[in-house]
């Protein structure tokens, strides 16, 4: 299945802004995060098709996954 992955803020550094990915059926969000070598503890918001989701949410064909880092300074 095809999933569009969007990265935000400094997660783009050395990676990409947006990329289409071919994934096996029933891939979960956390697997995509791990494959991108992103530390799960650095992840803030996860969204599928603009709705908040979790690491264990299962992706579907044509989903758009957005991954944001935690932004915590003040």
């Amino acid at each position: 299945m095809q999933v569009q992955v969007k990265l935000f803020a400094f997660f783009r550094e050395g990676r990409f802004k947006e990329e289409g990915r071919e994934l096996t059926d029933n891939t979960i969000v956390g697997q995509v995060v791990d494959d991108l070598d992103i530390d799960r503890e650095e992840v803030g918001v996860l969204m599928i098709n603009s709705r908040h989701c979790q690491f264990d949410t299962v992706l579907r064909d044509n989903d758009i996954l957005a991954i944001f880092p935690v932004i915590g300074g003040g």
Partner: peptide, 10 residues
């Protein structure tokens, strides 16, 4: 709420 990091904020 607001938070900042480098060039980014929310």
């Amino acid at each position: 709420h607001a938070a900042v990091n480098n060039w980014y904020g929310q």
